[in-house]
Design a protein around this nucleic acid. Sequence first.
DNA 1: TCCGAAAGGTTGACGTCCTCAACAATTGAC
DNA 2: GTCAATTGTTGAGGACGTCAACCTTTCGGA
Lengths: 151, 151
Amino acid sequence: MTADGAHSPAAPDQVITELADLVFQVAGRLRQGFNAIAAELDLPPAQALALVNLRGPAPMRDLADLLGCDASNVTGIVDGLERRGLVTRRTDPTDRRVKHLVLTDEGQRRRDLLGTKAHIRAAALFAVPDADRRHLRDLLAAVANEEQRRP
Amino acid sequence: MTADGAHSPAAPDQVITELADLVFQVAGRLRQGFNAIAAELDLPPAQALALVNLRGPAPMRDLADLLGCDASNVTGIVDGLERRGLVTRRTDPTDRRVKHLVLTDEGQRRRDLLGTKAHIRAAALFAVPDADRRHLRDLLAAVANEEQRRP
DNA sequence: TCCGAAAGGTTGACGTCCTCAACAATTGAC
DNA sequence: GTCAATTGTTGAGGACGTCAACCTTTCGGA
């Protein structure tokens, strides 16, 4: 493209483009790995994603906010998880509108397994010196926070 | 948790987890912005993504490889683009199996508009000092290349 | 106290995206 | 010439997501 690559520093525009491509690429690999692990555990991606986001009993609304999707969508995902015996719906006695999602023992087990496997895979992806990894984290955090400050 | 580590001051495991979360978060913002722009231009996300990946006349197979999806999927996407008059299929005279995708004038115009709008949005997302941006790019490139070296 | 707005969850219709298996046409190698 | 491989298409099917409408429950105020 620009024949002056050696002399003039790459245009900022070029850096932006490369950055966007790289973020997509790395996120794609990460997602692909997660989906593969989910498939190993016989879980559709969305159910697996919901599962790892379930720590303690929490209203379905919270999960919808966490996943950033419609509430009606969560209904279907939780239906799947409940059908597999991984979570149970428990109506809150103090507010009978809300239903808390509670992990079953098997659900807890599956969730932990999913978490550790995903972590191992992520570690394999970010196979760079530890100092670089920390620096990368800090830079990404700066981007995320900068953006969060102006939605 | 840490099978080997006795007492690390700042567990590398923690860094990995934060890193994965941040990459997902930033990629999510990026994707969200792109989809919003695609919607502005009255294009479904997949068609928009295919459009920006079309520079010159190229076989549909190439597009499938580029998007990393099944060939039958590309058929549907290109159907949509053709229905909107953005691309045309042109069978290669030298190999009548392949069909080259050619952008129409309107397709070229829409593609350029999409590209510039997406770029502006990406620039707004990566609103950090230029030095940080370059460093971030280099670190991500290192991760991508490291991974590419061992598939 | 009663009424209406608001919130949580479900359902149904609908659309997008993706894969897989099977197929026709074409090409190329043996 | 024949057979294997490739390109693109079709149809079935599933996962994922939104939207509108609905019921139930809660809560604030007239």
